[in-house]
């Protein structure tokens, strides 16, 4: 049952499909990973348009040479690494527009957000998190995204970002400390509602893996 598999396992499956069927099977990989890849790339580029360019560039690299992906021992962190490299490349190319980047750091106008059925309140809360993430240095924000949204271990994060494991862990600690300062007053407001939802939440969503570092 595919529903029981984790993202790395599903990506591994897609890698096998690409190996068997060739580049057209990249559609399955896109459907599986696009949202995750775009939000990860957007953390680096701070702009969804550039993030999508990075994702397109990364997936087209896999289309051009599927073997580099299928040969990888850990396809999911490997894919994240390709996207990150492409996002950084785009960022370097656009360095002369650093001032423009600064201008959008404090806004989310570039993001494409779905019309949610659960109301504007949750969307507003999510936007506050995104804004807070954009206030962080990129190297800290990407660790938070990989740890919390992609549920990678610090070992996988250190491999993906090509940094030592303690560095990954300390970046995460610093990032969470800053985020708790930025979101702290909201946390207190939300703590009661979260306590009420926690039982439902824990049954519906995967829990965040706690790691000793």
């Amino acid at each position: 049952m595919t529903l029981d598999l984790s993202i790395p396992q599903l990506v591994q499956q897609q890698a096998q499909r690409i190996a068997e069927l060739g580049s057209p099977a990249v559609a399955g990989l896109y459907d599986l990973t696009s949202q995750r890849l775009v939000r990860f790339a957007a953390t680096i580029t701070r702009n969804q348009h550039d993030a999508e360019d990075a994702v397109a560039s990364a997936l087209l690299k896999i289309v051009a040479d599927p073997e580099i992906f299928t040969r990888a021992n850990h396809p999911w962190p490997f894919l994240l690494q390709i996207v990150r490299n492409d996002a950084l490349q785009i960022l370097r190319r656009k360095k002369r527009w650093a001032s423009a980047k600064l201008a959008i750091t404090n806004a989310l106008a570039d993001l494409i957000c779905p019309n949610r059925v659960d109301g504007a309140e949750k969307k507003e809360a999510s936007e506050k998190v995104w804004l807070a993430l954009r206030q962080l240095p990129t190297e800290q924000a990407e660790v938070v995204v990989l740890k919390i949204w992609e549920e990678l271990t610090f070992q996988e994060i250190s491999w993906t970002l090509e940094i030592p494991l303690p560095t990954a862990a300390s970046r995460y600690r610093y990032a969470i400390a800053k985020l708790s300062e930025m979101l702290g007053h909201q946390i207190e407001d939300l703590s009661e509602s979260l306590a009420g939802e926690s039982s439902q939440f824990s049954s519906n969503r995967p829990s965040i893996r706690r790691e000793e570092v």
């Binding site: 990249v26 775009v38 289309v63 993001l111 779905p114 969470i176």
Partner: peptide, 29 residues
């Protein structure tokens, strides 16, 4: 910290890829 992590986790689905991205990648493939 757990509350912050949960709060961040809940914001994960704020962004969706644009409608054209799939066509762009799959079409090129």
């Amino acid at each position: 910290l757990t509350a912050i992590e949960l709060r961040i986790q809940q914001a994960s689905d704020l962004v969706v890829p644009s409608d054209t991205l799939r066509g762009r990648i799959v079409g090129e493939a």
